[in-house]
Amino acid sequence: MEQKKESLRIEIQGISQSFGEKKVLDNIQLNIGDGEIFALLGPSGAGKTTLLKILTGQLVQTEGTAKILGTDTKKLTDKEYSKIGMMLDTSGLYERLSCYDNLLLFTQIYGISKNYIEEALLKVGLMEAKKRPVNKLSKGMKQRLVLARALMNDPWILFLDEPTSGLDPASTREIHKLIFSLKEKGTTVFLTTHNMEEAEKLCDNIALLHEGNIVEYGNPKEICRRYNHQNKIEILLKNGKQLSLCNSESSAKEIYGYLQEGIVETIHSTEPNLENVFVELTGRSFE
């Protein structure tokens, strides 16, 4: 688990958390750098939200240290909080107030210009719902409003807990686009998800969490390649015939032949996805 040590924004050293007899996190070690999109993946109850709560200073860990921007999470001050954005599992929106008024409150708290409200609403595609009370919004719209609020203080680190859970594909795509644009600005994004595709698509690095332990860490594509034991190539021909060939010189000639004949419908390598890797490591399915 070699990780970069330069420009660390989040450092987690030997974090353990117990609730009574139950150990929810066990000796977690992680480093997350500038502009990195990192995902903590695991099934429900794996300890993702617990770690997120520790990192945002909502929960004090039983053992170990966690640092945000070089400051111990037990001692986070206004200075650090002003550089953190959060989109938590529960929205925490004022349901009776409009989208605009919800954001207005936070511009006043952060001491930033009201002009940002319309900019933020435009960014998350909620300009038309500006005056609509939050209790009249769909779940996807609420998620986007929470994201707009999390971005309000132009954070250095953005914590997202299941950011696209329950969203339709169009809203999910919008949120992914937004996360990518944040990365370009150098924002570090720490997200928890149980959506493997999302993690593969978005993240520079991921950690697979199982019963409080990190069972795998790294770049999602590299992880998938590492667990590609079959090392095969699957071909679907236009006549409907399916072939599974070894990744070898002789197969290359055979594939070349099919390609020359123009009879190849699809061609795929057989590396596993993150879900398969998780099942291989833990013997359990992800859901």
Binding site: G57, D78, Y81, L88, T90, I109, R149, N153
Partner: peptide
């Protein structure tokens, strides 16, 4: 109950 207070506390209030 609705976690709005938690959000305020996490926003330096």
């Amino acid at each position: 109950e609705k976690n709005t207070l938690r959000m305020l506390m996490l926003s330096n209030v």
